[in-house]
Simulated assay, not measured.
Amino acid sequence: MKKIMSLLVSTALASSLYAINNENTGCGLGSIVIKDQSTVFLQVIAATTNGTSGSQTLGITSGTSNCDKPTNFVSNDKLNQFVGENMDELAMDISSGKGETLNTVAKLMNVENTQEFSAKLQANFSEIYTSENVTSAQVIDSIAKYM
């Protein structure tokens, strides 16, 4: 077993000398260490490294480890707290296209045209509140798409 693991690690490290990136494996430590991802085997190692190291999640949120920070990423503690505490009220406001909770979210997100913003959210309510188990982070990410 040690010989197999040693062979896998040696192959992965040797492959990092080449610079063929593959979008299948995503970003993270695996994409940095294993630059040659020309075979399925190397792609599996890169993806596994990304997943097991936890670097992909950090890379996505911070824009590091060959990851691009999402353009609609909203990082606002007040917004996160507010939406988390007001999920039901926000859902009702979005469904009606108006309300104090929706206005507060618009203000926290620095939205200039609140009427247009509210109308977009109302028209896309089912894309924002996708199920009764949707999280506040998912709601915020969905709302950010319509800014």
Results as ranks from 00 to 15, higher is better:
F82E: 06
A91I: 08
S65F: 15
M1Q: 10
E100V: 10
G99C: 06
I20Q: 02
V139M: 05
L121M: 06
G28M: 13
D93Y: 04
T52P: 03
N24M: 10
A144T: 06
V44M: 12
A106G: 13
T114P: 01
A119T: 11
L121Q: 04
S55Q: 09
S16A: 04
A144M: 15
S95M: 15
A91C: 13
G59C: 15
T25A: 09
M109V: 08
M1W: 06
V111M: 09
L17P: 00
T52G: 01
S53C: 08
K69I: 13
T11H: 02
C67T: 07
V83M: 07
A91M: 13
C67G: 07
E127S: 12
L90A: 02
M92K: 15
D77L: 10
S53N: 07
V40M: 06
G84H: 03
N133D: 15
N76C: 07
I143D: 05
E100S: 14
L79Q: 05
G63N: 10
S142V: 09
L121G: 01
V134D: 02
T61Q: 07
G97N: 08
N113C: 04
D77R: 07
S15K: 02
L102E: 01
E23A: 05
F117P: 00
G26T: 14
T135N: 02
T11C: 04
A144I: 06
S62R: 15
E85F: 09
I94E: 03
A14E: 04
L79P: 11
N24Y: 13
K2L: 08
E127H: 12
I45M: 09
V134A: 01
T52F: 15
L7E: 15
Y18S: 00
E100H: 00
A46M: 08
T39P: 00
G99K: 01
I20S: 06
A91G: 05
K78Q: 12
S15G: 08
S75V: 15
S142L: 14
T25Y: 06
L108S: 03
M87H: 03
T101E: 09
N22G: 12
A19G: 04
A91L: 13
L42C: 03
G28N: 05
S136I: 11
M5G: 02
Q81F: 12
A91Q: 07
T64N: 07
V44S: 06
S65P: 10
V9A: 07
D93N: 04
S10C: 04
V9N: 03
L42G: 00
S75D: 15
A106K: 01
C67V: 13
Q37T: 04
L79M: 13
V44N: 01
A19Q: 03
Y18R: 01
N50L: 10
S65D: 13
T48G: 11
I32M: 03
Y129G: 00
G28A: 12
I94M: 07
M147D: 08
K98R: 11
M92D: 15
M92P: 05
A119E: 05
G26V: 14
G59F: 11
F117E: 00
L17Y: 02
N24R: 11
G97T: 12
I143R: 04
V74E: 04
G54E: 06
S95D: 15
L7N: 12
S131F: 09
G54D: 09
Y129C: 02
Y18F: 11
A123F: 06
S31Y: 07
G84P: 12
T52M: 14
F125K: 10
K35V: 01
N133K: 09
L102C: 03
S6M: 05
V134F: 06
M5N: 06
D93M: 08
I32Y: 10
V40K: 03
